[in-house]
Each structure stands twice: as structure tokens, then as C-alpha cells.
Amino acid sequence: MDCEQCGKCANLAEKNLSLCERLYTLLVYSENTPGLLSQITAIFTRRQVNIETLNVCASSTPGVHKYTITCVCTEDMVKMLTAQMEKRIDVLQANYYTDDDLFMLESALMKISTPVMLSNPKVSHVVRMHGGRIFEVNPTYATLEKTGATATVMSLYNQLNELGAVLQFVRSGRICITRSTEERLDNYLAKREQEREEIKG
């Protein structure tokens, strides 16, 4: 279990998962109606859980929006959060996952100082070690892109920042797809379509 990262339950004689805080990724699907995002974020605010990252985009199903949200909390809490989300009328599905269940990545863009880069060879060394991609250089700055796991992205940023090279930094929220062979949203939509037929029929 992941109790090493939690601190709250690591010292308990018996590991208690309901107390163990860890990083969860929530995949939420909703109809594309206005105002849904604030309804979803309000659920976090009310339960005093911080959103670590948030990504919203159209899903592969037309008319359905996908929210990818990460937060640190207990499993009991993440269950309550997803249940509260599914209670919103226009939310189709809300499920939670741990990192083992997902393929995931995030991207970062950085603007780094050309003078610092030229004066300190460590800068380009760090960039190369992390496989960062520079796609524009001018006398003032260089633009750098890195896509990968959160830890790698943050390692690149932290090391460049220590060298005083970073002018601007931005990280995308986490994006991910599930490892499971089951497509929960498709199954849900198919089931509901069948139920619609039954009601109409």
C-alpha cells in the first residue's frame, strides 16, 4: 500500500486505507452544458479538498465533455466526491483511479533565459538529461517543451529553476487514459440508450 506517502496512517499499527491520503485521478464525463465546471469544482471546495490539476476537453464521444482532475485525499473522500458529482443532473459518470490504473502524462512549457544558458553549461546539460525539446532560441530566451510523468517534468523545472534559468513556466493538467479493457462510459451510454428505448417503447 502507499502509506509511505501519506504520513497519516503510516504510523498506525494496522494500516487503515480509509485514513490514507493519496493521489487520485478522477475522470468525469458530462453533457456539454454550460456551468458544469463550477458545479464540479464547488464539490471539492465544499469538502475542503484541493484540486491539484484539472483538464477539461471534449471526449471521443460527440457532445460529451471529459474532466480529468487530480487531488490528494482518502479513499472514503474520493468516493463521496464522485458520488456527489454523479448526483449533478448533467454528469454522466464520475470514476476515480490510482496511478496504477492509468496511462498518463502531462506537458510543460518553459521560457528560459538565453544569457543564463550561455553562461552556465549546466543548463543545457539538464535539458538534454531530461530530453527536453527546445524549439525556438533568440538572444533573450529559449522555449522549451517537456512531456512526461509529473515527476520528470517537475525535476526538469526544479533543476533549471535552481540554476536561475526559468523566466516562465506552465504545466498542463494531467491527461490520461485508463488501462482497463472495459470502456465504462460507452457501456453506460449503451445501457441508458437501451433504457430510453424501453421507456419510449
Binding site: E31, I89, D90, L92, L189, R192, E193, I199
Partner: peptide, 8 residues
């Protein structure tokens, strides 16, 4: 309205 697919 007697059916909303996101609401059961």
C-alpha cells in the same frame, strides 16, 4: 421530458 441519459 421523461428521460435524461445523465440522470437515472
Amino acid at each position: 421530458v421523461d428521460f435524461i441519459r445523465s440522470y437515472n
